[in-house]
Design a protein around this nucleic acid. Structure first.
Lengths: 132, 132
DNA sequence: GTACTTGCAAATACTTTGCAGGTAT
DNA sequence: ATACCTGCAAAGTATTTGCAAGTAC
């Protein structure tokens, strides 16, 4: 396993939630272990193919990646439309409902799913009250 | 209302499900009512701001847009990871579960949500059997 | 040496912006 | 005339590719 792959994977595992290629590149550079942009993209692509990371997007125009845990545990995201903050959440009832929907989707074999709740985070609700 | 805005909106309403800017441009060109690329993007952005269309993405690297219906009715999507086919579905139980999750997300005010089920469509399951 | 990894430079693709000409009121 | 709509050309940003140099076995 290459050095780049290891440091990217470690960073993602440490952060735990969706990071963009730029954030990965910048963070590693700040830590004095700089990695070229193409390498970051290549490694993220490989890790995605190996199913070690999951690609997620929130309509910002950038791809984000987060670690996939062995147990199949995963979370979904709250996305603030105002400040782009991303907050993970876990909801067992929602997971059950997704499984049910998948079962009812005849002819389609689901292997993964993603859910994004969009709106305003607490800070932005307060800010909105003052300015708008 | 400009001519471009009307034709884009009509096309989206007619298609009903997520189209990319390129698909909109190409389809209108094929219909002998060509529209420039910048205009398509500008109009889609305006329609999004007016909440007449909804932006959705599936990790293909392109933004897609679909009409928003007045009644608040909406659907979610099955996305085939192999052929990128997009199939809309509606599932009331899932909607209820999302509403529940939003209620349990303290401090976050949800205004919209999106759900994507990923996997293989019927055609690709069959094809996969033959080739892989 | 062979296979895999990495970086640089260049290319590609999607999307946005600047600006000038056109249309409607 | 004022405001808006539209297209062309150019710019910006994310991502990918070609290729040569470096490392591990």
């Amino acid at each position: 396993m290459g050095a780049v792959r290891r440091s990217v994977l470690e960073l993602l595992a440490e952060h735990g939630c969706a990071l963009s290629a730029r954030e990965v590149t910048d963070t590693l550079a700040a830590r004095r272990s700089p990695v070229s942009r193409p390498s970051v993209f290549r490694v993220l692509e490989q890790l995605d193919a190996l199913e070690l990371v999951q690609r997620v997007e929130f309509g910002e125009g950038v791809a984000r990646f987060e670690p996939r845990w062995p147990g199949g545990e995963h979370h979904h995201h709250l996305f603030c439309e105002r400040c782009s903050r991303i907050v993970p959440f876990h909801d067992p009832a929602l997971e059950k409902a997704v499984a049910g929907a998948a079962r009812r989707s005849e002819g389609f074999a689901m292997t993964a799913h993603d859910i994004t709740l969009r709106g305003l985070c607490d800070a932005c609700q307060a800010a909105r009250g003052h300015t708008a």
